[in-house]
């Protein structure tokens, strides 16, 4: 029975749900980034779980985890860069106040 895998995946699912809720409900750019971090973390759990329980011989999976971690860091760096630039020019990182970005 694949109990371990299901437990790991359902934990990831819960984190994913939390992340989606956070990313959608928050008005602050930094808080939205926190939501996205949670979503990515959920993806990480899935990848590690698939590697461990399905294909332990495939190290590409682990490499992929590393890439996602990089993505998380990149997301942070760019996100904060944007946030600083916005804060300088507008005095706010609230998404409600960024409506001129709407198409």
């Amino acid at each position: 029975m694949s109990m371990e895998l299901i437990v790991a995946l359902s934990m990831a699912a819960a984190l994913f749900g939390t992340g989606v809720y956070g990313a959608l409900s928050q008005t602050n750019l930094v808080m939205i980034m926190m939501g996205i971090e949670l979503i990515l973390a959920a993806a990480l759990i899935n990848m590690v779980a698939f590697w461990r329980y399905l294909h332990p011989e495939a190290m590409e999976a682990q490499m992929f985890v590393l890439i996602v971690m990089t993505v998380m860091a990149v997301e942070m760096a760019v996100g904060f860069g944007v946030a600083i630039a916005r804060f300088r020019s507008r005095g706010s990182v609230e998404m409600e106040e960024a409506q001129e970005l709407k198409g």
């Binding site: 507008r90 706010s92 409600e96």
Partner: peptide, 21 residues
């Protein structure tokens, strides 16, 4: 002036622009 032109803010939304203004 920054705020004018922002419409559709939810009522009661606490504006950071105003706070930092």
């Amino acid at each position: 002036a920054l705020l004018d032109g922002l419409i559709g803010l939810e009522p009661g939304f606490m504006s950071m622009i105003e706070m930092t203004d």
